[in-house]
């Protein structure tokens, strides 16, 4: 029984066990490895993707539950906002080991979609589900503020 959905703008169909977490379908079946595995329990945010525009931990949502949905991964995140976020990340050299950053960037894009000018408290609320063991938090916060200023023009 195949599951049909839209992945990074393209219609796709996956003939795998519908109980498989979306994360592993994205990584192993679709071959998009930008989305990372960190905890398998929705506790670290490394696997964050957008499902119909909302940030979702893809390690805890089953493939069968996203039938017909539109999924965006870090590889497919595009448009002015996504590009501005990436630019800010590069301008401030946010990354260290980089493993969490796909998830951080996807969470940041989702935050800025909803709240174009987030306060520090808004950022803490939206981003505290995303662990960075290298401790890049100060720069993540700064990069989100920088993106907000850039988008404002």
């Amino acid at each position: 029984m195949a599951t049909t959905l839209t992945l990074n703008g393209e219609g796709v169909s996956f003939d795998v066990d519908p109980e498989t977490p979306l994360l592993w379908v994205i990584r192993e079946t679709a071959g998009l490895t930008g989305t990372k595995f960190g905890c398998g329990a929705g506790l670290c945010g490394a696997c964050t993707v957008h499902v119909d525009g909302s940030p979702v931990r893809s390690c805890t949502i089953a493939l069968g539950d996203v039938q017909g949905a539109s999924i965006t991964t870090v590889e497919g995140a595009s448009g002015d906002l996504a590009e501005a976020v990436r630019k800010a990340w590069i301008a401030l050299d946010v990354v260290q080991c980089g493993y969490c950053q796909s998830g951080q960037i996807m969470a940041a894009i989702a935050l800025l979609e909803q709240t174009p000018h987030p306060t520090d408290a808004d950022i803490d609320d939206a981003m505290s589900g995303n662990i960075c063991r290298c401790g890049t938090y100060q720069r993540i916060r700064a990069a989100i503020h920088l993106t907000a200023r850039t988008i404002e023009g």
Partner: peptide, 23 residues
Amino acid sequence: GTVKRLDSPAKTNGTALYGIDVK
């Protein structure tokens, strides 16, 4: 700001390769 990290672009667009990504 001239000398930027060489690994920033790959680590912001999902192309950086870790052990978990090797196939």
